[in-house]
């Protein structure tokens, strides 16, 4: 099971691969859409890659609630527990 720091680092790698954004820009308080300019379709890719990497299920209905990177890290941490 991954620590929050490890989840953040893993998520940053996924975001980097999908969008080319620098991993250092992917911080807990950043909003996916507003700050990182990630659209709803890239978000789906990120979600599926995260499901794979962290071996969790992120249902479609849940994706809307993952506004910030921190929301995603918390959801994944809780789902892994």
């Amino acid at each position: 099971m991954a620590s929050n720091e490890e989840i953040l680092a893993g998520l940053a790698e996924i975001v980097n691969a999908e969008t080319g954004l620098d991993v250092a820009d992917v911080q807990l308080d950043k909003s996916f859409t507003e700050d990182l300019d990630i659209d709803s379709i890239s978000m789906m890719t990120i979600v599926v890659e995260a499901e794979d990497k962290f071996e969790v299920k992120i249902p479609d209905e849940e994706v809307k609630n993952l506004k910030t990177v921190g929301d995603a890290v918390s959801f994944i941490a809780a789902a892994q527990a």
Binding site: S40, I41, M44, T45, V48, D60, V63
Partner: peptide, 12 residues
């Protein structure tokens, strides 16, 4: 359609 469901299925 439910675009998100279809998108996820269609790709992966």
């Amino acid at each position: 359609q439910d675009g998100q469901t279809v998108f996820r299925w269609a790709v992966w």
